[in-house]
Write a protein that binds this DNA or RNA. Structure first.
Length: 191
DNA sequence: AACAACCTCAACCGCATCAGA
DNA sequence: GTCTGATGCGGTTGAGGTTGT
């Protein structure tokens, strides 16, 4: 899809922006096959694509990468996202790392369009707020709670009252001990 | 059928962090 | 230690599709 904003933006190096074509996808995939999904500046240069490295990386990560799951989220996946979001907040890449085949962008979009609303509906019912009233509490565009109407989101409360997630554990690697802790946390949520 | 309002999601932007010189 | 380019991440945008009136 072509974006007006991108078309209007002055082209610094006449780079292509906007929606990717099938031909661009093919060129990018070929370049990655040769060079591997690293060194994006090299890939960009060798592919002959008139795109910036950042754009190529994003396209690969969110669309062209093998084993990407497309289509609806399963109930299990949805449940996992909700729990991980409660635990980690908006750390989409970390959440995506626990959902094989899902991208951070996809999870972020899914959260903003589906789950944040569900969350507020649930919380609204508990707090005695009708679904209609929730409309004014939730930002129409993002589905997030309006800052003016509430001081903090659910996960922030958890972080403030219990511990600092950043300090408490590091999800940047795949250590089995870390996974074990998270698994225990999630099992605890089931009980 | 026509229009408006709302929703979805691919893509971009700005910033932070990392790595090498 | 610091500079610079590359990479990664989260927030945001907006075109196109869908649903409601």
């Amino acid at each position: 899809m072509a974006r007006i904003k991108d078309k209007q933006r002055p082209a610094k190096k006449e780079l292509n922006t906007g929606a990717w074509t099938a031909e661009e996808d093919r060129k990018l995939a070929e370049a990655i096959e040769i060079n591997g999904p690293k060194q994006w500046t090299t890939i960009t240069a060798k592919s002959g694509l008139n795109r910036c490295a950042k754009s190529c990386r994003l396209r690969w990560m969110n669309y062209l990468r093998p084993n990407i799951k497309r289509g609806n989220m399963s109930d299990q996946e949805e449940d996992l996202i909700i729990r991980l979001h409660k635990l980690l907040g908006n750390r989409w890449s970390l959440i995506a790392a626990r959902l094989p085949g899902r991208t951070d962008n996809e999870i972020k979009n899914y959260w903003n369009s589906h789950l944040s609303k569900k969350k507020f509906e649930k919380e609204g019912l508990i707090a005695g707020i009708s679904t209609k009233e929730l409309g004014s509490k939730i930002d129409k565009k993002t589905g997030e709670e309006n800052k003016a109407s509430s001081s903090s989101s659910g996960h922030m409360d958890l972080e403030k009252t219990m511990f600092d997630v950043d300090d408490f554990f590091d999800f940047s690697n795949e250590k089995p001990s870390t996974l074990e802790w998270v698994t225990k946390f999630l099992e605890f949520g089931d009980a």
